[in-house]
Amino acid sequence: MIKVDQVSKSFNSTRVLNDISFEINRGDFVAIMGPSGSGKSTLLYSISGMDSISGGRVMFDGINISAMEENELSGFRLTKMGFVFQNAQMLKNLTVLDNIKLPGLVAKKELADTISNRALELMRRMEIEGIEERDIREVSGGQLQRASICRAMINNPDILFLDEPTGALNSGATDQVLAILEDLNRDGMTIMTVTHDQRVAAKARTVIYIIDGEIAASMELSSDSDREKELDLWLKKLQ
């Protein structure tokens, strides 16, 4: 589905990503790991078209999205991609439910009622029903992060991008979010996440480890063994 082809990114004269290439297939769950400053978030934003790249290209279902105009790309992001950030970023002047519905209403692919019902269904699935009409400052971090996932899912995107989705959550909330991601992936959703958290990465099928803007290693996690232990051993070997 996504082909990352020799992507590089520089800020002024500093090269942050260096000729990175890999592929993401439909239904994959890819986790990007690496030490701080290694370029993993930059890679996520570059692949998703939220940031420009200095070299290479990103193909999405055969379309070169790195060559797209800004306006074209925004339409692509609206319908094909969903985003979840570390600190649940939501518009302060909308209620939780309206924040979730907004991308659906903007896309205008479906009737407003259908979007509303889907938003409520997603909230039920994420176990955050009851906070629909609340101001975003009146709900907990965990609830807000799950609401962010609902928003990312509202247009049935082809892929979900997550940047440290549990970075600002406590242990209980982290478990809830992880369960949801696992559930979504099981239903066929393609997921790419950047994380420091081994528990998050352990839910992925593929883990890519980045050091100094280059892919240092990658691994496929087996489906039935103790994935966290397997990942831990692999990371220790890398260090």
């Binding site: 302060k92 002047n93 209620t95 309206d98 519905k101 903007v106 009737l111 407003a112 101001d135």
Partner: peptide, 30 residues
């Protein structure tokens, strides 16, 4: 700063003129 802003509701019938609706809604809050 946080205390001051409220929120507006999106129209249940959908966003016919999305930029106009959002601009007016945000203006109401800000």
């Amino acid at each position: 700063r946080i205390k001051k802003e409220g929120h507006y509701a999106l129209p249940s019938a959908g966003l016919k003129h999305r930029n106009l609706t959002i601009a007016i809604g945000e203006l109401k809050c800000k």
